[in-house]
Design a protein around this nucleic acid. Structure first.
Length: 324
DNA sequence: CCAATTTGACCGCG
DNA sequence: CGCGGTCAAATTGG
């Protein structure tokens, strides 16, 4: 317990430091007087945005690590992205995959530009994409950095043009079950075989990765709250929303960017939620309250509030837990 | 028996 | 047409 706790703390601080770095970089960028260093003065707006995303992402992940996941995705993000202004549409942030495992010290990030961000070319596949380099420890069986917090399923391997080693392709294990479209590529470096290039594409929308781990041991008083949090988490993954009047308008909640986050402030499962992040439609908030009228299947009354400019009307909606 | 990997086929794009 | 990426049938492994 102590160990995992310590490890968690490490991860957490790593994440925060990561975010801080990005923040400082952005700060430096914004802070520079135009006169100074006129040469390399500007990052592209894309890079700035990516930095921003990185910061937000770090916060999200850190919070995630503290509370367990309570991040939810809206269903229509891709359409929103496609429809939106190409510059502002970069989707959502990658949760930066902190690679850890047994030996944190032998496996480390290379710093100094070892992470580069790339809001890929304006093709159809505009998913967040970023790369990292990981040095593998001697101890772990020659093969790979292939474990971060997520579970990946290999779906291909290719020999690459000028590369000594093949490139392997992974996707999230829960692609089908949870509509999680995150993928990653692993490419062993030509010159230094202990280094692997990891390319991540897309963000995890699965309720996987870091679970709310074993907070159970804490005060008995919090069990109810924890349970309710779990309930919300479950809701965030198996959720169908249907409008009160309109059966036809029902939609499933989770998956894909813009993020919506729940904040369960009361112990009873009620809470508020709203848009998180810098892209997508904002000003979409809601208030959740329990509807105790039914026994077994939890039903929440949700009061949506939309920005006036939004197309959709404010209304009273009902969250339905999706069977199971 | 189920789930993950392997591996050649397939396919879109430049 | 070749390259990089993905699919899916066959195979492996638990």
């Amino acid at each position: 317990m102590d160990m995992s706790n310590w490890e968690q703390k490490n991860l957490l601080s790593e994440e925060l430091v990561h975010g801080l770095k990005a923040a400082k970089q952005l700060q430096a960028e914004l802070g520079t007087a135009p006169s100074l260093s006129s040469s390399s003065l500007c990052l592209t707006t894309e890079m700035r945005e990516t930095l921003l995303h990185q910061i937000v992402s770090s916060y999200e992940k850190a919070i995630w690590m503290l509370n367990g996941s309570n991040i939810v995705h809206s269903p229509t993000a891709e359409m929103v992205n496609l429809a939106a202004d190409p510059v502002a549409n970069t989707g959502k942030v990658p949760e930066s995959p902190t690679s850890i495992n047994g030996s944190p010290r032998s496996e480390e990030f290379l710093d100094g530009g070892s992470k580069d961000y790339n809001l890929s070319s304006k093709k159809r596949k505009m998913l967040p994409k970023w790369t990292e380099q990981v040095r593998i420890s001697p101890e772990r069986g020659l093969e790979g950095p292939h474990d971060d917090v997520f579970s990946w399923r290999k779906y291909g391997q290719k020999d690459i043009l000028g590369a000594k080693y093949p490139r392997s392709y992974y996707r999230c294990t829960f692609r089908n079950t949870q509509n999680c479209w995150a993928t990653k590529q692993v490419q062993r470096s030509d010159d230094d075989p202990t280094i692997f290039d990891l390319t991540y594409k897309g963000t995890h929308t699965c309720s996987q990765g870091i679970r709310p781990p074993e907070k159970r041991e804490t005060r008995p008083n919090t069990t109810l709250v924890n349970y309710q949090n779990d309930l919300l988490d479950n809701l965030s993954t198996n959720l169908t929303v249907r409008t009160n009047g309109n059966e036809s308008e029902a939609f499933s909640f989770p998956f894909t960017p813009p993020f919506y986050a729940f904040e369960s402030d009361f112990g009873n499962g009620a809470g508020t939620f709203g848009h998180v992040g810098s892209s997508g439609p904002s000003n979409f908030t809601g208030l959740i309250s329990t509807n105790t009228s039914t026994g077994s299947s939890p039903i929440f009354d949700v009061d949506f509030q939309f920005d006036p400019t939004a197309e959709i009307n404010t209304g009273l909606h009902t969250f339905l837990h999706d069977s199971v």
